[in-house]
Every structure is written in C-alpha cells, then in structure tokens.
Simulated scan of single mutants.
Amino acid sequence: MSPYLGPLRAFTAGFVDTVGFVALFGLFTAHVTGNFVLIGASIAEFHGGIVAKLIALPVFIAAVALTHLFVTQRQRRGVSPVAALTLFEALFLAAFMASGLAANPFTAADSPAAIATGMLAVTAMAIQNAGARSVFAALSPTTVMTGNVTQIVIDAVDLVAAPDKAAAAKARLTKMLPPVLAFASGALAGGLGYVHVGFWSLLLPLSAVMSAWWLLRRSAVPSA
C-alpha cells in the first residue's frame, strides 16, 4: 500500500474528531469511548448533551459490524474491499458536512438535528476504524493515537539506549510517526477550519479520503 495512506487516514480522523467535538457540544466521533468520560462529567456538573454521547457507542458498534460483514463477503468473493470502504467513508463524511451545513447553528446538544449530524460522523469513523482492524491492518493505527505515542516513546528510548533493538525500533518509528503527526495536524486544522468556515472545512478531510481512494484504485490497476 502507498506510504501516504496512513497519514491521509490519520489526518482525516484528527480533523473529523475535532470538528465533531467543537461543533456538536463535545461529541467524540472517532474516539467514541471518550464520550463515557464526558457523560460522567455531564452528570456530575448537570450539563446536557448526554443522549448523543449515549447513542454514539451503539451506532459505532453497528457500523463496525456491518462494515466487517461487507469486508468478509467481498473477500469470500475474491474482491478487494479497500477502495469501496474508503468510498463509503467519503460518502458518510459528505453527508456529515451536508447535514451540518443544513442544520447549523445547533441550539442544543440533544436536538434531533445535532444527534443525526453527529451519528453520520460516527458512522464514517466507524468505517475507518473497522478497516484499520482488517484490510488496513498493515498500516499504523490512524484513529487511536495513545498507543502509537506510547510505542514511539519506547522506540525512541531503545534507539538511543538499546543498540540490539535499534533496527526494529527505527522501523516502527518510520511507520508510526507520520500518522501521529498527521493526526495532530488534522486536529489543529479541524479546530482552525471550523472557526473560520464552519462545516465547509470538512472539504479538507473529504479531499484526503478521496485522495486515499484514488491511491487505492490506482494501485489496483495492473501496470501495462
């Protein structure tokens, strides 16, 4: 696979997660388990916005399950699902952007429009997460960065202090560092983009996903 796929996917996840958090009253769309912390905080401080965060996990689970079924069926037929999965993610991201543009400004975290908009983003990120555990397993994880950062620190120490582990550590650093930097860049770009142009900023991660789709389609075409 192209070395650009990991960074493109990580950039998308960081961007979308940030836009969802800022625009939809603290809803995590990629790191859905983070919503449990926010639910606890909402209960403790008597804030609203609990319904969308509660719904996010079952929607995420359902989308992951359906994505995995799709992948399994395609593989049984001997057809690669990677390009199709990327296209599905793009479609849900486009729907997220369109819904946000149509319904914004949101007046309440648990309004039907805010919940529906958020679940479109959750579905897009569920597709990316499911793909990361199956057809994109060769790439570094692109949505959960805590584990990546932990491994990067361990490998950086080994690179300096453990010469016998240096070669393997360098290989992992080369693989993991670009997606972490891309995710951070996406998060920063998502915050700045939403502040300046609102949901139109989602054109940037949508372009990243379509670029990944183009790379996958090109790699699937046999050379002449």
Rank of each mutant, 00 (worst) to 15 (best):
P3R: 07
F15W: 11
G20W: 08
A23E: 11
L24R: 13
L24P: 13
F25R: 14
T33K: 11
G34P: 07
I39F: 12
G40S: 11
A41G: 11
S42C: 06
E45Q: 08
G48P: 01
L54A: 12
I55N: 08
P58A: 10
I61V: 15
I61N: 08
I61D: 06
A63H: 04
L66K: 09
F70C: 00
F70L: 07
V71W: 02
T72G: 00
G78W: 06
V79N: 04
F88E: 02
E89C: 00
L93M: 13
S99L: 02
A103W: 09
N104G: 00
A109M: 08
A113N: 10
A113M: 14
M119Y: 06
M119T: 01
S134I: 02
V135S: 09
L139I: 14
S140F: 15
T143D: 03
Q151M: 13
A156N: 05
A166I: 04
A171M: 06
R172A: 12
T174K: 15
K175E: 11
M176D: 14
L177A: 15
P178A: 05
V180H: 02
L181Y: 01
L188F: 14
A189W: 14
L192H: 08
Y194R: 07
L202F: 09
L206W: 10
S207N: 04
S207Q: 01
V209N: 04
S211D: 01
A212Y: 00
W214N: 03
W214T: 13
W214R: 14
P222D: 07
A224C: 05
